[in-house]
Design a protein around this nucleic acid. Structure first.
Lengths: 206, 206
DNA sequence: TACAGAGTTGAATACTGGTTCAGGTTTCAG
DNA sequence: CTGAAACCTGAACCAGTATTCAACTCTGTA
């Protein structure tokens, strides 16, 4: 699941050998699967170790606690989502078109990474600060990117803070509904409808 | 906190006397406080009983399990939010103005009922079906109300499903950001900015 | 006043699962 | 080859806490 290099564990607990690195990766992947399926509280260290094919003791060689792996996972995931979505936004001709492409990419990501999506959501209760950090940083990115688009005349003037959080919330809920719960409709279709809403609003054309 | 009559406990566990009713109410209120502060998993039955001023045994007279109170709470809360918000929407001259009034009311509600807000959110992981039921029903209400507004010519035609979930997500995130995390700005201001976005979109006026 | 059903009590039970630790095994530089 | 550092092992420990239960108290009706 997590194919990438691992948000580093804690303190001096960094692997010094290739062997150690492999173990850490295996544990992170196992943890992602375990927490994704069972959730944080139902998920168990023993099962994570088993999935990873290592002993419980090895787990504690690399992570200080259950919460520690979880936090490492959130950071890792936060990065993955961004990496999956941002390029699509940047590749689009303008910010508004980017919003549409970004949402479609996000929905696709969610559909293929439901576990990760769930983990980030659950971090709100297990690691509030990590959760906040994730969304605050995403929102900041949104706000500045929107403001920049305003400079180019692509979007109207307005409250960047509110707009950023609003759009983010929209995307998250569309991800939940049409990514996790209901795969019955093509992601592009959802993205198009959402794009229309964000772009022109609900008011009838005057 | 919960001043209203209690989503009924389970099966035959309904109080037959005023005395019993008082106890159930006390337990529900205590549970709201406990879960609101510590979250579901950190919250303890012993502490709920203590807060309610009853013995642990009494708790089990009225609720089958920890999860049972939590579910009762979610239902109760779902109702409270609705009751706090819907009247404002209905009182407005039209659906779009209602959206604005509704959001302001929602933000006010969240600021004064943070525990409830947290409980509903956490239900996503403790009682997925209850969480789903809550949002699915809210979304359905949104969708039909929007469609009705379309009939009156107040909003443009579009994808009701997507619009409903999008707006709901918007509101939830604005509630998180400007209701729970950051009370620095007046709720009316947030609602106005959000209203502008929903109503006219981001595209510059043509 | 007396009895029955409704409510109450909280110590004891039962169990789960995170964390520790006292050794083994592997790896690799010298 | 060799020894020390890096890693691995998993049974045992332990703390926390949901749930049970057998006995007790209230309350209101006859």
């Amino acid at each position: 699941m997590t194919q990438q290099a691992l948000a580093a564990p804690v303190a001096d607990k960094t692997p010094r050998t290739a062997r150690g690195q492999r173990t850490v990766r295996a544990i992170l992947d196992a943890a992602a699967a375990e927490f994704g399926e069972r959730g944080y509280h139902e998920g168990s260290i023993a099962r994570i170790a088993q999935r990873a094919g290592v002993a419980i003791g090895s787990f504690y060689t690399w992570f200080d606690s259950k919460e520690a792996v979880f936090r490492a996972l959130v950071a890792d995931m936060s990065r993955q989502v961004r990496e999956a979505v941002v390029p699509h936004i940047l590749a689009a001709p303008d910010r508004l078109a980017g919003e549409r492409a970004g949402l479609a990419a996000f929905l696709d990501f969610v559909r293929t990474h439901k576990a990760l999506y769930r983990i980030i959501d659950e971090s709100a209760f297990v690691a509030e600060d990590a959760y906040r950090a994730h969304y605050v940083s995403v929102a900041a990115g949104y706000a500045s990117s929107l403001e920049q688009a305003f400079g180019k005349g692509v979007v109207s003037d307005g409250d960047w803070q509110v707009r950023a959080w609003a759009i983010m919330g929209m995307n998250v809920f569309l991800g939940l509904k049409f990514g996790v719960w209901d795969e019955g409709r093509p992601t592009a279709e959802i993205a198009a409808a959402a794009h229309a809403l964000i772009s022109d609003g609900l008011a009838p054309r005057r």
